[in-house]
Measured scan of single mutants.
Amino acid sequence: RKEMTAACTPRRRIINLTSVLSLQEEINEQGHEVLREMLHNHSFVGCVNPQWALAQHQTKLYLLNTTKLSEELFYQILIYDFANFGVLRLSEPAPLFDLAMLALDSPESGWTEEDGPKEGLAEYIVEFLKKKAEMLADYFSLEIDEEGNLIGLPLLIDNYVPPLEGLPIFILRLATEVNWDEEKECFESLSKECAMFYSIRKQYISEESTLSGQQSEVPGSIPNSWKWTVEHIVYKALRSHILPPKHFTEDGNILQLANLPDLYKVFERC
């Protein structure tokens, strides 16, 4: 597991931080080997919608929660590849102030007048994250320049770009939802926020969305749709870069829909 690298990086740093090793061990302890084997050997059937997909393993048909699986995938990559990410360069710098204002204007932020003026909160978020810029760049390849612009994001899987519609809320939550006081809790909560931002979430995906850094293989055609990215990038990574937690067998994120021999018997009677 320590050699797990989802995106190509030129050289690998050895990380011996106790906090990170502890988080890696927790993933191992909570892992479910049968689910790992199923995901490793599954045959992708198709997307139901951005949140759900169908896959077959041996004779069984499964309904998989793409949102939760991708979130767990990105969390584990962030923990196992800690401080070893490439950088996704933004085509132009994104001012943190503008991103924070967009987030505060969104109902998702939960902002009320009692929280104070949005401009003041946005300025605080910019200054707060600028103070964390060195650590964010060093460990997470999340790059913020001296003017308070976001200029780079971590490359977690080759050819995958997170849904940038979720970027404003991500920046807001970096400042408000991460435990910045304790090292282990900081790395864990920061990785979880980043994983949620990178995950496939239906509120940020339309039929026209593209999450891939590449064009489709047909010359002159439109960019790959999110469905292509889910199948050929995300579920491909799920084959080798995730140890599913045991609770996925109990919380409805992986559901067995049918045993195909039983279905064949039904059709034979028709």
Rank of each mutant, 00 (worst) to 15 (best):
Asp158Cys: 07
Glu146Gln: 05
Lys246Val: 12
Ile200Asp: 11
Gly116Tyr: 15
Leu260Trp: 07
Cys270Pro: 14
Tyr160Val: 02
Asn224Ser: 11
Glu177Cys: 14
Asp251Pro: 06
Ser91Asp: 11
Leu167His: 00
Lys184Ser: 05
Glu182Met: 10
Pro117Asp: 07
Arg13Ile: 14
Ile79Asp: 15
Glu134Gly: 03
Gln256His: 12
Val178Ser: 01
Tyr62His: 06
Gln51Lys: 07
Ile14Leu: 07
Ala237Thr: 11
Met38Ile: 10
Gly252Ala: 08
Gly252Arg: 09
Phe97Ser: 02
Leu102Glu: 10
Val266Tyr: 15
Glu268Asn: 05
Gly213Gln: 05
Gln51Phe: 05
Lys130Gly: 15
Ile157Val: 07
Leu61Met: 11
Ser91Phe: 14
Leu174Ile: 02
Lys236His: 10
Thr5Trp: 15
Ile157Gln: 06
Phe187Cys: 09
Arg12His: 12
Asn179Gly: 03
Arg269Gly: 14
Pro107Trp: 14
Trp111Arg: 02
Leu99Gln: 03
Leu39Val: 13
Leu23Thr: 14
Glu231Met: 13
Glu146Leu: 05
Pro162Lys: 00
Glu123Thr: 02
Lys130Gln: 14
Pro168Phe: 01
Val45Thr: 11
Met196Ser: 07
Arg269Cys: 14
Leu155Arg: 07
Glu147Arg: 06
Leu172Phe: 05
Phe82Tyr: 04
Leu243Ile: 10
Val218Gly: 06
Lys227Phe: 08
Ile222Asp: 08
Leu190Gly: 01
Asp262Tyr: 14
Cys8Ile: 12
Lys227Thr: 04
Lys192Val: 11
Glu217Met: 09
Phe267Ser: 01
Gln24Ala: 13
Glu3Arg: 09
Gly252Lys: 04
Trp228Gly: 05
Arg36Ser: 15
Lys236Asn: 13
Cys8Met: 09
Gln30Leu: 11
Arg36His: 13
Pro117Ile: 15
Lys227Glu: 09
Glu250Pro: 08
Asp158Trp: 04
Val234Thr: 13
Glu182His: 03
Lys192Glu: 06
Glu127Thr: 03
Glu193Pro: 00
Pro50Phe: 04
Gln51Cys: 06
Tyr75Asn: 14
Gly116Val: 15
Val48Cys: 08
Glu134Thr: 02
Asn49Tyr: 14
Tyr204Asp: 07
Thr9Val: 06
Tyr264Val: 05
Glu193Asp: 01
His247Trp: 11
Asn49Ala: 07
Trp228Tyr: 07
Ser191Val: 03
Asp98Asn: 04
Asn179Tyr: 06
Thr18Gln: 05
His232Thr: 10
Ile242Pro: 15
Leu99Glu: 00
Glu185Thr: 03
Asn84Ile: 12
Phe97Ile: 03
Gln56Phe: 03
Lys265Thr: 09
Arg89Asp: 13
Glu147Asn: 06
Glu37Lys: 10
Met4Gly: 11
Leu142Cys: 08
Lys2Ala: 12
Leu69Ser: 01
Glu268Trp: 15
Phe85Trp: 14
Leu167Val: 03
Gly148Gln: 03
Leu153Arg: 00
Asp115Ile: 15
Glu177Asp: 15
Ser216Trp: 08
Ser91Leu: 11
Arg239Met: 12
Gly116Thr: 14
Tyr139Ser: 06
Ile233Glu: 12
Tyr75Ser: 12
Ser225Arg: 09
Gly46Glu: 02
Gly120Asn: 14
Phe140Ser: 02
Ile171Leu: 12
Ile254Thr: 10
Thr176Phe: 02
Gly166Glu: 11
Ile144Gly: 01
Ser109Leu: 15
Leu164Tyr: 04
Pro245His: 13
Leu17Gln: 07
Tyr235Gln: 06
Ile205Thr: 11
Gln215Ala: 08
Arg36Met: 14
Leu102Asp: 12
Pro93His: 06
Pro10Arg: 08
Leu255Gln: 02
Ala103Ser: 14
Glu193Ala: 10
Ile171Ala: 02
Asp181Trp: 12
Leu64Glu: 01
Glu231Pro: 10
Glu268His: 13
Ala6Glu: 11
Glu113His: 12
Ala6Asn: 13
Met196Glu: 05
Lys60Ala: 10
Asn49Ile: 09
Gly148His: 05
Leu54Ala: 08
His40Thr: 13
Glu193Val: 13
Ser91Ala: 06
Thr67Glu: 06
Ser206Glu: 04
Glu182Ser: 05
Val34Asn: 08
His32Gln: 10
Asp262Gly: 10
Phe248Tyr: 06
Asn179Asp: 05
Lys118His: 15
Phe267Thr: 01
Val234Lys: 00
His40Ser: 08
Glu29Thr: 10
Glu165Asp: 03
Asn41Ser: 05
Cys47Ile: 04
Tyr124Arg: 01
Val218Arg: 09
Glu114Lys: 02
Arg12Ala: 09
Thr176His: 01
Val266Phe: 15
Gln51Val: 07
Leu156Thr: 02
Asn179Thr: 04
Pro154His: 00
Lys192Ala: 12
Glu3Phe: 14
Tyr80Ile: 02
Tyr264Glu: 04
Gln56Val: 03
Thr66Asp: 00
Gln203Val: 07
Leu63Lys: 03
Leu174Thr: 01
Gln215Asn: 10
Val20Asp: 15
Glu193Trp: 02
Thr210Val: 06
Ser216Ala: 06
Thr66Lys: 00
Leu238Gln: 07
Val178Thr: 04
Asn84Cys: 13
Asp138Ala: 03
Gln24Met: 12
Asp115His: 15
Ser22Asn: 10
Ser22Gln: 09
Thr9Ser: 11
Ile254Lys: 03
Asp105Ser: 11
Tyr160Phe: 04
Leu54Arg: 00
Pro10Ser: 11
Glu177Ala: 03
Asn65Pro: 06
Ser189Ala: 03
Ile205Lys: 04
Tyr75Phe: 07
Pro93Ile: 04
Thr59Tyr: 14
Val126Asn: 03
Arg11Gln: 13
Ser216His: 09
Glu72Trp: 12
Asp145Ser: 03
Cys47Leu: 05
Lys68Met: 09
Ala100Tyr: 00
Ala122Gly: 06
Glu119Lys: 02
Pro245Glu: 15
His42Asp: 14
